[in-house]
Computed example of a mutant assay.
Amino acid sequence: MTTPVPYDPELEPGLAAFLDLVERIPLRADTILANRAHFATIIPPIGQIVGDRPVEVEDRTVPGPPGAPDIVLTIIRPRGGVTDAPAFYSIHGGGMVLGNRFFGVDGLIDDVLRFGAVGVSVEYRLAPENPAPAAVEDCYAGLVWLVANAAGLGVDPGRIVVTGASAGGGLSAGVALMARDLDGPSIIGQMLLCPMIDDRNESVSTRQYDGRGAWDRNNNDTGWNALLGPLRGTEQASPYAVPARAADVSNLPPAYIDVGAAEIFRDEATEYALRIWATGGQAELHVWAGGYHGFAGFSPGAEVSRAAASARLSWLRRILRAP
C-alpha cells in the first residue's frame, strides 16, 4: 500500500462525519441496495431543503433517450421568475449506483439565488439495473430538453453550465463529450468536482486510498463494476461513460476541475486537465492540500473549504460574465 497524503487536520472531523453518515455500510456488489436505501434516508425532502428561501420548484417529466423511459427534471427558479438567465444543469453524485436528483440540490439553490439563475437537476437511471450508457444518455437527454425549452424557462441557452460532483462530475464530462460529438447543445462550461472518470482504478492516488478515507478504491471498484459489467477495463467501454477513455478531448467547453489531494480521484482529475491543456483547450484545475473526497461539503467551515468555495465562485463569475 502506498503512503497516503495526510488529511488537513481541520478536515478530519468532517471526514469522520462523512464516514459515519454516508459510508456506514461497506459498498460492495451485494450491499448496493442496502446502501441505496440508507442513502435515501440522508437526503431530506425537497421542501425541507428549500426552507424559506425565495425559489419556485417544479418537476417536469420529459422525453428520455430514444427507446428509453421518460426522465424527471426538478427545475428551481428565483421566485417571480427570470429572463435570459444563466442555467446550472446539475447531475448528482453517488458512485453511479446511489442517490437521486435532490442530492446536492441545497448548493444548487444557493447558486440559483446567487446568480439569478435557473437550476435543473436530472434524475438518471442507476446501475447495475441500468448499465452504461443509460445514465449519461439520460443526462444528455435532459440537457437537450433544457436547451429546446430555454425561452419558456427564462434561460439564456448560451449560458448553461453542466455541473456535478463525483459520479455527477464524471457524467458531466460525458455529457460535454456527447454534446460535442453529436453536434448538440452549446455548453458554456463544465464544472467537474472530484470527478469519477476512469474505470481503471490503477493510479497512485487510488492505491493511496485503498481501504481508507471517503469513497475508497474498493467502493470505486464496486461502482465501476456495476456500471460497466464485462466491459470494464476494455476498449469497448464507452468514453461517454468513462471520459478518461476518450481519445480526443479537444474542442470541449471550458472545464473547472476541483479535487482533494487526499482522495482517489486526484490523479485522474489532474490527468484530464493535462490532456485538455495539451489540445489547446481551457481547464482550471484546483488540487486542494489535505482534502478528502467531498471535503468542501462536509467541512464547509475549514479554511481550505472556504478557499475552494471562493475559487469555484470566481470561475463561475468569469465563465458566466456575472458581476
Rank of each mutant, 00 (worst) to 15 (best):
Y124A: 00
E123K: 01
A87G: 15
G93R: 04
F103W: 14
H92Y: 10
L108K: 13
D106Y: 02
Y89S: 08
V118N: 12
I91C: 07
S121C: 02
G116A: 03
G94V: 05
L108I: 13
V122P: 08
H92W: 08
A117H: 11
V97G: 11
G94S: 13
L113Q: 05
G119P: 06
L108M: 11
L113E: 15
G93F: 07
M96H: 04
S90K: 05
G94I: 03
A117Q: 13
L98M: 11
V97D: 15
V122Y: 11
I109F: 07
E123C: 10
V97I: 11
G99P: 10
R125M: 05
L113A: 07
V120W: 03
G116V: 01
N100V: 01
F102G: 02
D111E: 13
F103C: 15
S90P: 01
G93W: 09
V120G: 10
A117L: 06
M96K: 14
G107V: 01
F102M: 09
H92D: 10
V112W: 04
F88M: 09
F115M: 02
G107W: 11
Y124M: 00
G119Y: 12
V105E: 05
G95L: 08
G94H: 01
D106K: 10
V118P: 07
G116R: 07
L113I: 14
A87N: 00
M96C: 05
R101Y: 00
V105I: 15
V105L: 02
G107K: 04
S121D: 09
G116S: 04
V120T: 13
V122Q: 05
A87R: 12
G95S: 07
S121K: 04
M96V: 14
N100M: 11
L98E: 04
G94M: 01
G119M: 06
H92S: 08
I91M: 14
G104K: 03
E123D: 12
E123R: 00
A87P: 10
D110W: 03
L113R: 08
E123T: 00
V122E: 03
F103L: 09
D106G: 15
F88P: 02
G107A: 08
A87V: 06
I109M: 02
I91F: 13
G94K: 06
F103G: 04
G116D: 00
I91P: 14
D111L: 06
F115C: 05
M96Y: 14
F103I: 05
I91L: 15
R101S: 08
G99T: 04
F88N: 14
Y89N: 07
D111P: 04
